[in-house]
Design a protein around this nucleic acid. Sequence first.
DNA 1: ATTAGCACTCGATTTATCTAAGTGCTAATT
DNA 2: AATTAGCACTTAGATAAATCGAGTGCTAAT
Lengths: 336, 336
Amino acid sequence: MSLDERKKKILSSVVEDYIESAEPVGSKTIVDKYNLEYSPATIRNEMKLLEDDGYLEQPHISAGRIPSTKGYRYYVDNLMKEKKLSMLDINYIDNSITGYGDTENLLEQASDTVSKLLGRPTILTLKNEDIIESIKLLRITDKILLVIVMSKNGTIKDCVAKLTDIIPEDTVNELTKVLNINLKGTPLERVYYALNMVISKELTTFSEILGQISEGLRRELNSGVKKISNNVESILELPEFSDVEKAKNFVNILSTKDILDSTLAKVSNNELGIIIGSENKEILLSEYSIISLNILDDKNIGNLSVISPKRIDYSKTVSTLKYINSKFKNLFSKPN
Amino acid sequence: MSLDERKKKILSSVVEDYIESAEPVGSKTIVDKYNLEYSPATIRNEMKLLEDDGYLEQPHISAGRIPSTKGYRYYVDNLMKEKKLSMLDINYIDNSITGYGDTENLLEQASDTVSKLLGRPTILTLKNEDIIESIKLLRITDKILLVIVMSKNGTIKDCVAKLTDIIPEDTVNELTKVLNINLKGTPLERVYYALNMVISKELTTFSEILGQISEGLRRELNSGVKKISNNVESILELPEFSDVEKAKNFVNILSTKDILDSTLAKVSNNELGIIIGSENKEILLSEYSIISLNILDDKNIGNLSVISPKRIDYSKTVSTLKYINSKFKNLFSKPN
DNA sequence: ATTAGCACTCGATTTATCTAAGTGCTAATT
DNA sequence: AATTAGCACTTAGATAAATCGAGTGCTAAT
């Protein structure tokens, strides 16, 4: 499955030209633009062979070639040169990710920034494997409590519990103890289940209030797709979406949480994973690629994925995600 | 500017048929479907007159008629019968709006529900005219403070402030005082400005921390478009969007906060307001209608607007919003 | 005041024609 | 053996012409 140098050059030229132009690439273009020292006829012969081997495809018989999924894969694994980001891009990222707020704010900023920079939607998924460090209760009024959860890695989440009866100070203290004893060490994403366990075994005195807290925290802390930064203006301008049906399909994919959740669950465990077109198990995604960054600290914090038609500048995307990742590592390593 | 009964019947038939079919309505359709006791020729004469008066338009000379903005306006003001919602719809709404969480959660649920029910995007705008009752600070760690803002009507908002230096207990107490003295009574939406005033006149000791708080609260509390429930699957299916350019334009409008903010600022002060097509000042919106509900308690809490091509079932939309409003009134009147 | 009758208009659909890009193959060349 | 010039061939896409049908506006009759 190895290609000689000339084939490699041709394949990489086709991929890069197609990524830029969105038009099938012909033999003449390759000779002219990419300085191959051969005639178009030679290139044609080689392209035929590359097509026979499944690296290239021909939309129709009198058209140029476009990369197949296999072609993109070979390019990504063997041919792609990692581009350095331009100073402009670096500045843009640095200015957009201010580090304001907690980890979640930070990831959201990163997600928006990447989406804007690449002109593709990004999907931010939170893992919440982080575990609870402690819980505080703050009395707001007689009947309203603010429940504040602090995680080991510094995530702070809260929810409001509205009760029907007035809560005496004792109860609040007692409740704080109960919550801390039972929940310390629990992963954030499992708080809901843990609390329901507590409810089922604890005195019924607390069950109403615990129910409220459980429901509130479930909404704040569940894992899964958190946010889609959908830079729609630019994505719909892609020639891939000049056909309304395709545009609709894509929009549909983006708004179907299940598809995204299950697809992103299958991304590799490495920091960087690339799924191209039909490599995707989900058939609706067979014309799209997902390039995703697992955000790791001690634990898997979340995942930031770029979704796009297969035609995307993989090199720039990877560089961007890597740069974002280095920023994360930097910010995480700083003491809070 | 008053129309005789027959013209009214014809106009309302054209509007209702066009709302349903999205096709220009011809004289024969009206006679057949709406039981007018006249021949198509008579209807044609009347339609001609209605067109001369600006109530109807003809896409081209050999087509049927469609309502003009003026025609829709007359229909909405004089002809439209308010439909009762079906039990199905009422159940759907009742089950979707659970009343969980604070006011903001509630409005978001309502916005999503209306969007799903009508198959149109909804825009939720929050006003935050509600004023600050008190502010508490909670120390999370040496360097992290949780700032909790409580409003008069029960909204609770918070943000995290991360500082570079360790904050002594005294400082926290002092700061709490400063914040309460300066911010009590301030409308939530003006907290940012109020805090910056404080910063400019207070001792520089607090300026870093106040800056953090100011920034954090600005993000939590600013007024304006809060959430767009964009039920994209169904909206893009409308025949109005079979042309990609129009679809893009609409998507663009939805993602341009400025357009929506300034348009919604001009909506009437009544609980229910309807802006049709070119009545809109913003030229980009001249083919769209906005039907919006101002949500009032003591103060103006926010606005829930449906945005759509001019062709929308105004009657059902109005009924839905009115029903939602009655639910709000019910929930607000209950004590917390 | 209403309507039957009819010529007319124009968008939409279909069919035919043309063009340009790019191929694959063969035979000649290096 | 590798490369390339030459050429017939294919096909998408653009343009033009032909046809169809829905619906009109006007005139004259009822």
